[in-house]
Design a protein around this nucleic acid. Sequence first.
DNA 1: CCTGAAAGTGCCACAAA
DNA 2: TTTGTGGCACTTTCAGG
Lengths: 155, 155
Amino acid sequence: MAWTFDEIDRRILKTLQHEGRIANNILAEKVGLSPSPCLRRVRLLEEAGIIDRYVAILNPAAMGLKLTVFSRMWLKSQDAATVNHFAREVGQLPEVVECHLMAGDCDFLLRIIIADLDAYRRFQIDHLTRIDGVQSIKTDIPMQKIKQTTEIPLP
Amino acid sequence: MAWTFDEIDRRILKTLQHEGRIANNILAEKVGLSPSPCLRRVRLLEEAGIIDRYVAILNPAAMGLKLTVFSRMWLKSQDAATVNHFAREVGQLPEVVECHLMAGDCDFLLRIIIADLDAYRRFQIDHLTRIDGVQSIKTDIPMQKIKQTTEIPLP
DNA sequence: CCTGAAAGTGCCACAAA
DNA sequence: TTTGTGGCACTTTCAGG
C-alpha cells in the first residue's frame, strides 16, 4: 500500500533524516506547523513504519576504523542450508555492516568496517574464510568516499 | 589521536546507535549513571566527533522504493576533471545513496535506492549514462538483504 | 494554555594522581 | 593540591493533553 505524503510530511521526513534528535517545537517551526499537530504527524509516520527508527551515526575514523572494504564472496553451493548458515555467521560479525545475497556475479556482497588493511587481512583469514561453505573472496577497496548518506530519496 | 573509551562510553555509544532519540535520563539509567554525568559524556562524545550526528532511518519499502542496486561504473578517463565532474553530478542525485571511488576493477561503486527495475532502467538512461565521461555500467542486484546496519563496531 | 517531566547548569563531594 | 568524575538541586524548556 502506498502512503500519500503531503508537502509537510515530506519536510518533516527530510528534516528528521538530517537531525534525528531535533526537538518537536523546533521541527514544528521549520515545517510551518504548531507543535501539537507536528508531533501527531511524526507519531503517525512512526506507527506507519515510514520512520523505522532513530540512530546515532558514529565516525569510524575517529575510533581508528579507517578502512571500509567491499567483499564479494562465492560459496561452494547455493543450497538453503549453506546460505542460511553463512547468513547466520555473518550476522554475528560486527565488522560486517552490510550483507546482500546477490543475483548473478557473486553470491554475496559484504561491506566491512575495520581499522586498516592489515586488520582486514586478519579478519578475512580468521573469520570470513573460516565460515563453512565459503569458496572464494574478492576484495574491493574504496580509495575515496564520494558520497555516503542514510537519507532516502522522498517520492 | 586515539580516544580512550571506558566501559560506560562504550555502553552509551552502543545504546545511541540503536536508540538515537532515547531520553538522557533513561540512557543514564541504562549505563549506570545519573543523568548529569551521562549528559556530560554524551556532549563530549559529540564534540570529539565520535558521535557525528543523529538521524531518522526511514523504511524505503514503505514508500514504494522496493529496490536497491549496486552499480559499478567505468569512466572514459580517470583524470581529475572527469572524476570531479562525475562526483559532483552524482552527489546531486538523491537516488544515489552511496558512491565510492574504487581501487582497481571498476572506477566507481554506487548504491542506488529506487522504486523498481523499470524505474532503475529509466534512471540509468536518463541520469547515469548522461553524465559526461561515463563509459560503461554494470548493475548488480541484491535478491535478499541479509544484514544492514548503521552500527559501527566498537573497539 | 497548562501541567508534569525532562534537559541543562552550577555547585559540591570525593577519589586518584 | 590539582584534576577528573559522579551526584544533587535548581531553572528553563519541552512534550503532550
